[in-house]
Design a protein around this nucleic acid. Structure first.
Lengths: 185, 185
DNA sequence: TTCCGCATGTAACCAGTTACATGATTAC
DNA sequence: GTAATCATGTAACTGGTTACATGCGGAA
């Protein structure tokens, strides 16, 4: 119950096409909410029917026409009203944690490899966030308004990734089969 | 695509009824995967049709009959095969982060209150995890096998909750309107 | 010539949520 | 009497995923 709000948030920051929103979701917004392009097109159509957004069709040479979506005052008001509502604590979902809990000694070797792979991917993600922080928010003490909020969300993403990296290291160190803990079974 | 695996994991640790599984999901397993009782009953029926579990009906006096589900060897094998498959990095979803990003100065007061509420709830959750750690895993260095895995998952939950608490504090400190930063608009 | 990026969508399916229904026992 | 706990389920709906479809321009 929040994809339309996530899209409205993105459009409040800047108008854009469905395609372009999908890419924004892959990057910055995807840090805390994700959506595929199909979902986004479907939701944009509903939002337009509800009067939250309007679209302007723009013809292009060589490329398909595109529709630029803009948040309407009604959409902005609906977004503000939603922000004022309480939010549930989000349910954490970790497939890797389920696998860890389900693993017996026979699955441990492949699980170790998978954990190492997750570690790499999280490191990449963290590096991207840190680069972003450096590039976009050089002077955090002076941030205000929307920019400050964006920065704080990014800080959350960084903190969580760092924690998860640390946890993955702890798991690799504690599970048998690492380094020099020999002895099969 | 993993609820049946989460249920199988729970049943591998110990057989149980649908009702009882729902409560386990609310507690320990809910730390990284959640499900309502309707979802669980529905999925158990499918798992039984697929031969992953068997059920024994137990008549009770005064209370409705209950069905105790047990993982079959086939279910156990399917679970092990699934553990060996790679897992996607899970998509983080944070409604609160979307709200923070969407908030303008007009919504800040209610958002601050909401963040404080989340802080409290996370603190409660962390306290519960820490109590659990103390009670169930007094001697972590000696853990092996399934118990070690359970412990490591719990450690992950603790680390994430601590990080999020720290983040919420950072947000409250950075947003205007806190303590002594007066001056409206 | 093959792949990637731009740009939009339909259709079918699967998973998750919410509401409703039943009914006895036990504790307050 | 009122609410909570035990125990199972149906039905309708909403949201998310996967597969398929189209087609041009530019780069390798």
């Amino acid at each position: 119950m929040a994809l339309e709000h996530a899209i409205a948030t993105a459009l409040a920051e800047q108008p854009g096409t469905g395609y372009e929103l999908a890419r924004r979701f892959d990057k910055s917004i995807g840090q805390f909410w994700s959506a595929t392009h199909q979902q986004i097109y479907r939701t944009l159509a509903r939002m337009e029917a509800d009067g939250w957004v309007t679209s302007t069709e723009i013809a292009q040479h060589g490329r398909p026409d595109k529709k630029v979506y803009r948040l309407t005052p009604a959409g902005r008001a609906a977004l503000a009203a939603w922000v004022r509502e309480p939010a549930d604590l989000d349910v954490p979902r970790s497939e890797l944690a389920v696998k860890l809990r389900a693993a017996t000694s026979r699955e441990l070797p492949s699980l170790r490899a998978e954990i190492a792979r997750h570690r790499e991917q999280r490191q990449l993600r963290l590096d991207a966030y840190l680069a972003n922080e450096k590039r976009e928010f050089a002077n955090p003490a002076e941030l205000r308004g929307r920019r400050l909020n964006q920065y704080l969300v990014l800080r959350g993403g960084i903190a969580v990734e760092q924690t998860l990296l640390g946890w993955l290291d702890e798991v690799l160190a504690a599970l048998p089969g690492g380094a020099r803990s020999g002895g099969r079974r």
